[in-house]
Computed example of a mutant assay.
Amino acid sequence: MNETVALRSAVLKRSTTTDDVRERLADEILLGQLEPGSRLDEQSLAQRFGVSRTPVREALKQLAVTGLVEARPHKGVVVSAVTPERLAQMFEAMADLEAACARHTALRMDDSERHALTSLHALSREAATAGDFERYDQLNRDFHALILRGCHNDYLAEAAQSLRLRVTPFRRAQFLNPARIEESYAEHEALVAAILARDADAAQATMRGHLAQAGDASAEFLARPKHPI
Rank of each mutant, 00 (worst) to 15 (best):
N2F: 06
N2M: 04
T4I: 14
T4R: 13
T4D: 13
V5G: 04
V5F: 04
L7G: 06
L7Q: 11
L7E: 10
R8F: 13
A10M: 09
A10P: 11
V11D: 00
V11P: 01
V11K: 04
V11I: 15
L12C: 04
K13T: 12
K13E: 15
R14P: 00
T17S: 07
T17I: 06
T17W: 00
T18R: 01
T18C: 07
D19R: 01
D19Y: 03
D19E: 15
D20N: 10
V21F: 05
R22D: 05
R22F: 03
E23C: 06
E23T: 15
R24F: 00
R24N: 10
L25R: 05
L25N: 05
A26F: 01
D27P: 01
E28H: 06
E28V: 03
I29T: 14
I29E: 04
L30V: 05
L30E: 07
L31R: 10
G32R: 09
Q33M: 08
Q33V: 06
L34W: 00
L34E: 10
E35H: 01
P36T: 00
P36G: 05
P36M: 09
P36R: 12
P36Y: 11
G37H: 02
S38D: 14
S38A: 14
S38P: 00
R39E: 15
R39F: 10
E42M: 05
E42H: 11
Q43H: 06
Q43N: 11
Q43I: 14
Q47P: 03
Q47I: 04
R48M: 02
F49V: 14
F49N: 08
G50M: 11
V51F: 07
S52N: 04
S52C: 01
R53A: 10
R53T: 13
R53K: 07
T54V: 13
T54G: 02
T54M: 02
P55M: 06
P55G: 08
V56K: 08
V56D: 09
R57F: 08
E58N: 09
E58D: 14
E58A: 14
E58I: 09
A59R: 05
A59H: 07
A59W: 01
L60I: 14
L60D: 13
Q62G: 09
L63P: 07
A64C: 06
V65T: 09
T66E: 00
T66W: 02
T66N: 08
G67T: 01
G67Y: 06
G67P: 02
L68I: 07
V69E: 01
E70L: 08
E70D: 07
E70K: 10
P73C: 05
P73Q: 12
H74T: 14
H74A: 09
K75F: 11
K75L: 14
K75M: 10
K75E: 12
K75Y: 05
G76D: 05
G76H: 08
G76M: 15
G76V: 09
V77F: 07
V77Q: 07
V77S: 13
V78Q: 03
V78L: 02
V78S: 05
V79R: 04
S80N: 10
A81R: 15
A81C: 01
P84H: 10
E85N: 04
E85I: 08
E85H: 07
E85G: 02
E85Y: 00
